[in-house]
Design a protein around this nucleic acid. Sequence first.
DNA 1: CGAAAGGCTGAAAACCTTTACAGATCTTGA
DNA 2: TCAAGATCTGTAAAGGTTTTCAGCCTTTCG
Lengths: 342, 342
Amino acid sequence: MAVTIKDVARVAGVSVATVTRALSTPEVVRPATRDRVREVAASLGYHPNRAARGLITGRTGNLGLLVPDLANPFFPGIVKGVQARAREADHAVFLADTDEDPAAEATLVRRLAKQVDGLVVCSPRMADAELRRLAGEVPMVLVYRRIPGIPSVTAGFLDGMRQAVGHLVALGHRRIAYVAGPKTSWANRERLRSLRAVVRTADVDLVEVGNVMPRFEGGVSAADRVLAASVTSVIAYNDLVAIGLLHRFAARGVPVPAGMSVLGFDDIPLAAMVHPALTTVALPQNRAGQAGVDLLLQLLDQPAPHTGPRRDQPAPHMGTHAGTRRELPTHLMVRGSTTSVH
Amino acid sequence: MAVTIKDVARVAGVSVATVTRALSTPEVVRPATRDRVREVAASLGYHPNRAARGLITGRTGNLGLLVPDLANPFFPGIVKGVQARAREADHAVFLADTDEDPAAEATLVRRLAKQVDGLVVCSPRMADAELRRLAGEVPMVLVYRRIPGIPSVTAGFLDGMRQAVGHLVALGHRRIAYVAGPKTSWANRERLRSLRAVVRTADVDLVEVGNVMPRFEGGVSAADRVLAASVTSVIAYNDLVAIGLLHRFAARGVPVPAGMSVLGFDDIPLAAMVHPALTTVALPQNRAGQAGVDLLLQLLDQPAPHTGPRRDQPAPHMGTHAGTRRELPTHLMVRGSTTSVH
DNA sequence: CGAAAGGCTGAAAACCTTTACAGATCTTGA
DNA sequence: TCAAGATCTGTAAAGGTTTTCAGCCTTTCG
């Protein structure tokens, strides 16, 4: 049915070994033969069967990508970044959406592990220990989560927070609310930690408003508590929450930004589309995805672990090497949802 | 390194043939042996190498999914639907984002074709003829595009338009603008065709406002022309365009819905988050993805084409069979962006 | 008790590719 | 012209699985 290497060999009048060499190590075969083989291959539309190749080389040429929820507009950007870089490196990518289910994450990692060279795992919800175990089973890089020993790509939350708070302070705000995301979320913990650190060095009061789901509804549900906190500005866990706040503020007749400055996090495309457009801390999405793939490919190119790696010393892909951690810059996008006090 | 069928065979004291049978055709092996083998397999954490299996069975257990632009919020829903159904059927899915590039579509289809059993191709931008050719090379189902001879999943645009226009007419609107999407888009052509058909039977004037990109900016750029058309309501090609309109109307001081009713298409999650929330024709996303996978799997289960299929009769997967076309229902989501005239 | 029938199991081929090794051809220098 | 070396090419094994075929053992019936 499909054209195989044998067909090419037969038509070109050479052995299959020569065909594979002409295609993958052209320099070792005589130019005349090489060109003939390549011509035949092209005319027959031959492409090596990657599964068969993977069987022998141990490399599938495929990558896996796990995201918690594709419906969260933060993730498509990352996925696109991963795709773009993977395609450049001639790799295809398996995508799995875990529906925010930590248990599904482990299952899917294992399910995919056999078919890929490595995985990019995005904002995983599962526990550190479990993740570490999985990282021992299959090469893996983390995006938007940091665990010592596993290569990771994150963004400068602390710096982002510094810019955000700096912006509000410059506008005269002295009481700021923070609407926190899920307690179990690493990103939320990091943002909160950064925020507290920043606040400590500035002359502002911070009011923390309970944990909400990182979605529109979470913002809606937190809005009234924010209003009750008598603050002049609010930083939301992410843009979706911020937009939920906006929605509820509008319904309550609180003008934004005149009556309340709202600041988001992520800079999802949506942030620029709402009215007023959202001031937000932009986190790289595309670039984070790309960086994830870069790290992963780099990891895979490292000398392979000794067959039967010792238990007592981490396998090379555990990420003990340099350049294994990457922190991308963040920047503040000032739009219409923040303004000066009075 | 990884545990293979040989390991299981050795430990269980049987041949590899028995192992594979115990796992994939349990009824043919003696219960005692079967149980022992399965136990050993489980304890060793054995999972068949799918690449190797695919080599011999011709089935990879993988599906491919092509989308034009994951950043368009319409598509993540479809992707999630595909994922969900694929996972139920124990298939993994390759995702490729074509970045709205028709040329990339063909390349990616061919690139993926070797590694999957079939493809779900979503809202493809390429020409019918090209798509037909590709469908001859690899089992394929179309989602949100209909081409005779290729299995497809679409939604009832005509019915959706009937509901949309009916809603506006009931509210007293007599002049309606339509902001069209890209001329090359099949969805746009269908929507326009449906709209014209509906308008013909109702007592309303239709003003068509030029073709715009199917994004937020497209709506922004069309808004002024809509205002100049002295209509009381506008139907946008999709929600993103509608939201762009909303944005520009707000900037121009035109109150929505009091001064202008705005109606979208798709019902992306965002539609409910903007202010005012968008009245829109809801197209199934998740269900469309699921239906696409259903159709594809059904296609694959059909008797395989005779080895060396005749040129003069379509291969089975060309979709000459019944049940090969599926049209899902649409419904109008009435929210805050439409109201009665005066 | 013997033979046929049926149920289970194992050996080996097949899927498509890459690669180690050995063989063949060509070039070069004497 | 011959030998040695370099260059190129072919054979065969390997990778993990499924499947065909044949053979073994057990059962059943005469």
